[in-house]
Nucleic acid binder design. Structure first.
Lengths: 204, 204
DNA sequence: TCGACCATGTAACCAGTTACATGATTGG
DNA sequence: CCAATCATGTAACTGGTTACATGGTCGA
């Protein structure tokens, strides 16, 4: 069997809080962890089985009407593995922003295409913020499912909002700037652009 | 054959600028595009072959000493495909930050583990910024390989620096905050934490 | 009672990564 | 002249996704 991934440990971490069915795990990961560690729903079902094979989780069969359902709980050796993992160094952070790829190649298209792409990014960030806001409002309302973990969730939320805010602010600025261009085609930089570039190179 | 991915189009975009060998493409993607669309080196070799199969690129064999080398160039139908792609909507942006997963589960470990993880994130962001700075300094120096595309690269750089700055600022703040904790274990939120949470829920 | 949606998965595929391999070049 | 590094890939594996399937439930 191959090495457990960060995704494995993220599910193990959820199991450390309480037992869950796979379906509940899907819900929880989509609800919260998706923001920093997005994975598809189906993937959870496979991954949690691996935890069982590793001896890090137990699977218990429950009846649910005529169907059955599997509830997973962490084992002592699972807790030990989780703790060992917390001692290792996290992977390099990464971002994937397709809109930026399009900006990079914007000289192959029109100003309109570029503005559309940046506007889409802006809307995407807004929509993520809206999700986050709804989630946060729920927690403010009734404490959420884990009222005693708010001190951990809070800085996560603050980071994410800042990130989205940076994104929308930037997108607004660049949309305004680009809208004044005749074309995104290649051309020599203006003096102002060169100055901004120098600022970047000297950033603290 | 299966649908081309964003990675395919990102290579096609590079080919639209000039012909490249696969090795040069690797260098260029690692140099710049990696920041917003990171992919492994080996992947480039496979992907560019797909472009040829699609009829979007031509492969020319060159001699290089006793070895041979393949230089790729875009075809007219490749240019058309690129332009069509620019009309579609970009995928949702996503971030993967393992350190945040660890923060989420920090109550399963110690304050020290959490501080280590956040410090690692801080250092990782610093190191990315340092790479970016070196790259930018090179462009300021001699204009870089594409001096007429600075107007496109500039906003990309500005976004990325802001992102990293946000990350290091946040990490510094949270490290300081966490260092005052006895333990990251679950506990009720303080009044101050609840107030911050409410601020988030009402963010503009 | 029927359509829609929730609950609970499975199967197949593929994008992407890791590991390796070999020839050329260059600096010490 | 030898080690290290650059240049140029290939092969094998796997993490992750997309697509699908089926049973239950609830509201209109």
């Amino acid at each position: 069997m191959t090495r457990p991934t960060t995704t494995s440990y993220s599910l193990l971490g959820l199991l450390a809080l309480q037992p869950w069915t796979a379906y509940e795990l899907v819900g929880q990961t989509q609800r919260s962890m998706r923001f920093f560690w997005p994975r598809s729903e189906a993937h959870v079902y496979g991954e949690v089985k691996r935890l069982v094979k590793l001896g890090w989780a137990d699977a218990a069969n429950e009846a649910a009407g005529k169907r059955h359902r599997t509830r997973y709980s962490i084992t002592p050796s699972g807790r030990a593995a989780l703790n060992e993992w917390l001692d290792t160094t996290p992977a390099m952070p990464m971002v994937e922003i397709e809109a930026m790829v399009r900006l990079f190649f914007a000289d192959q298209g029109t100003v309109e295409q570029l503005v559309n792409s940046l506007t889409a990014l802006r809307d995407q960030a807004d929509s993520l913020a809206e999700h986050g806001r709804a989630l946060t409002a729920g927690i403010v309302d009734d404490g959420g499912p884990f009222p005693n973990r708010i001190h951990l969730i809070l800085p996560l939320g603050e980071y994410y909002y800042g990130l989205l805010r940076h994104t929308t602010d930037w997108a607004d600025r660049v949309i305004a700037e680009v809208a004044t261009w005749d074309s995104p085609a290649d051309r020599p930089p203006t003096a102002a652009e060169l100055a901004r570039l120098r600022d970047l190179a000297e950033a603290p």
